[in-house]
Structure formats: structure tokens, C-alpha cells
Design a protein around this nucleic acid. Structure first.
Lengths: 189, 189
DNA sequence: TTGCGCGGAGAACGTTCGTTCTCTACTGTA
DNA sequence: TACAGTAGAGAACGAACGTTCTCCGCGCAA
């Protein structure tokens, strides 16, 4: 038998892909079982309920997002470049064939009204992203008001790209971010 | 017996409130029946299926959104004012106690992967909004690239406000829109 | 008044889901 | 080899859902 950590990761990985592709409520635990290759009994010994699994999947997604963002901003040397790297990261993501919007927004829209655990996990992820942007804005020497504006652009790009089915929003949001950065850091335009 | 048009409106109105508050899949047809005061038999003579009702509700929401936007921009005399009125409209909406994000985004996140009819209705609404913004941008004498940037700000404000549970995003998005408008129309900053 | 058609209330049906239970097969040990 | 413990496969269970059906009462023509 595979050890607990491996089984847990297999379940989360499988559930993440299924939930993201079809929506949380459209995926039964049987489908998770089949995809993960872990018996229902085992799944329920690892997670107390489906809600528990959903929250674990969201935490897993948070980790993926954070590390993806970090590696995308790796080559950047200035705070301004790191800010714009966010939108390049989005651009690359939007072009992936499996892209179907932000999993946090989707899950919040689906379950936010009924599950506070889900709501909390989603809110925490967004708060953490806004904090990340706020640090970069401070490093760039721009006023703090710029940070939520950039975060809103990133959020809007994700939903726009998801609904339209095209990656254009990343480029458009990036252009807006450049303009806002220029103005906030005193570049003449 | 109430006439067909009245019954239809009662069902759509009741379904709209329930779907928006709890999510589409969390609301059974029994709950719609009770809230609307229309028998299940009647509902199924007015709508072929729940999917059909969902699409009708989305169309109803499109009408509400369009007329709300129109009346919010009523007092504005310039294109610039009409553009900024979008964000004032959002601000007022975000403060309503029932606000729970954009119904189109929520429904798309919930059912977009499984129902193409829902997907189409959502995409059509967003396309129509972008067209509205594009007209205002043209009237303001700004380059066309500004329009999708403003639309992205509006989308981002809606999801940000929904998840954070505060109306701040409207004000922040409005400030960003002002900056972008100034730059695009050649105002020195 | 009698028969008839129609609509409302909600019971019924078949399906699906989350969760639990049962049975069987396998592993390691003496 | 015999046995104890555990885990997998999936049947089973109760609830909830979308949809259809049945029954009953009401309004209306002759």
C-alpha cells in the first residue's frame, strides 16, 4: 500500500484537476476515487468530508499559484519588472488549453454562499495576493493606492479571459498596469 | 388563474433571487415553486427544463444590468462622466446587503463547463458590456485600447468586492479608470 | 344540476450523490 | 499452514434532485 502522504497527494491532485475542469459539484467522489486510484474508504480516512477535500484542494492551488508567481518573477530585477511579470504569468496561463478561470473565483461563486470554510480559503488567497502586490508597489516607490488597482486588473483579466475564451485580457491588463505604474512613479506621459 | 406573462415573471423573479443568493445548483425547483407561488406543472409548461429557466434568469439579469447602468449614467453630460458613472453604479451595488458578486461570473464558474447555453448567455452579456464601454471611449475621443482596460477594471472590481465582502474595490477601480482616462485623453499628470 | 376540462398541490419516480458497510484478498507472523 | 489485521472494490443506504403523474376541486356550458 502506498504511504499516507503519497495517497493524500494523489487524491488532491486528481480532485484538483476534476474540480477545476468540471466544477466542484459536478464531480462525484466516485470520480475522484477512480482518477486518484485510491479507495473511497481511504479517501474518507484522509479527509473528513468532501468539503474538507475541497478546502485541501484550494490550499494546494494556493501553493501552486504562489510558486508559479515566484518563478515567473525570477528573471525580473526591478520591482516594476516583477509587477509586470504578474501579467506575463497570466498571459502564459490563459493560453493553456485547460485554462478555465481562477479556481478560487469559480469555487467561491459555486459554494461561497453555503460553505464558510470555502469562503475563508478563497478570501485568504486573495488577501495574500494583494499583500504580495502591495510589497512590490512599495519597493517600486509608488503610493500604496496603486496596489489594489493592480490587483483589480489581475482579477478582472482572469474572469474576462475565462469568459471570453481568449488570452487578450492579459495583454490589455498589462498595458493598463504600465500606464498606472508610469503615472504613480512620476514618469511623464 | 394568473396569466402566462405574470406567472412567467413571478417564476423568473423568484428564481433570480434564489439562484443569486445560494447558487444555482443549491436551489431546487421545489424552492422556486414555493417562492414564486406557481405550481411545478405550470413552471414546466413555461420552461422546458431548469437549464431553460437559468438562461431566462440570465437574460432577465442582463435587462436589469442594462437599465441600471443607463439610469446611473442619466445625469452625466460627457462621455467621461458616463464612463465614471459605471464605477459609481458598482459602488452603490456593492453596498447592497444582498450583493454577492456578478451573477454571470458566478453562474459561469458553476455551470460554464457543463452547459453551453449558460456559457453563451454569459459571454453575450460581457460582450455587450464591452461594446457599451467601447462606444463611450470613442465618444470621449480616447484610443480604442482604453475600452477593454476599463472593462477589465469593472470585472475585477466585482469579483474583488464579492470575495472581500467590502465595497472598496469600486472606489479603487474608479481611481484607476480616472488615471487611464486622463492619460488616454492627453491630460497632463 | 350534471358533466367536462383545466389547473393546483404535492406524491411518485428514477437518478445521482455523499457517506458507510460488507465481503474478500492479501500480507506478515508463528 | 493457520491466523489476525488491514485495505481495496464496490454494494448499500438515506437524502435530495429534476421531472412527471395522479388526484381533487373549481368554473362553466347546456
Amino acid at each position: 500500500m502506498i504511504d499516507e502522504k503519497t495517497a493524500r497527494e494523489a487524491v488532491i491532485q486528481a480532485a484538483d484537476e476534476l474540480f477545476y475542469a468540471h466544477g466542484v459539484q459536478a464531480v462525484g467522489m466516485d470520480a475522484v476515487r477512480t482518477a486518484a486510484g485510491v479507495s473511497l474508504k481511504r479517501i474518507y480516512s484522509l479527509f473528513a468530508s468532501k468539503d474538507d477535500l475541497i478546502v485541501a484542494v484550494l490550499h494546494h492551488r494556493t501553493g501552486m499559484w504562489d510558486s508559479g508567481l515566484a518563478s515567473a518573477s525570477e528573471p525580473a530585477t526591478t520591482a516594476r519588472e516583477r509587477i509586470l511579470a504578474i501579467f506575463d504569468f497570466l498571459d502564459a496561463w490563459f493560453r493553456e488549453p485547460t485554462f478555465r478561470g481562477c479556481a478560487f473565483i469559480n469555487t467561491h461563486g459555486e459554494l461561497g454562499a453555503t460553505s464558510t470554510a470555502v469562503s475563508d480559503a478563497v478570501r485568504e488567497q486573495k488577501r495574500s495576493f494583494q499583500e504580495y502586490v502591495a510589497h512590490l508597489v512599495a519597493d517600486a516607490g509608488a503610493p500604496a493606492e496603486l496596489a489594489p488597482q493592480l490587483a483589480i486588473l489581475a482579477e478582472g483579466a482572469q474572469t474576462t479571459a475565462a469568459i471570453a475564451g481568449t488570452p487578450d485580457a492579459a495583454r490589455q491588463a498589462r498595458a493598463a498596469a504600465e500606464t498606472l505604474l508610469d503615472v504613480a512613479t512620476g514618469v511623464r506621459r
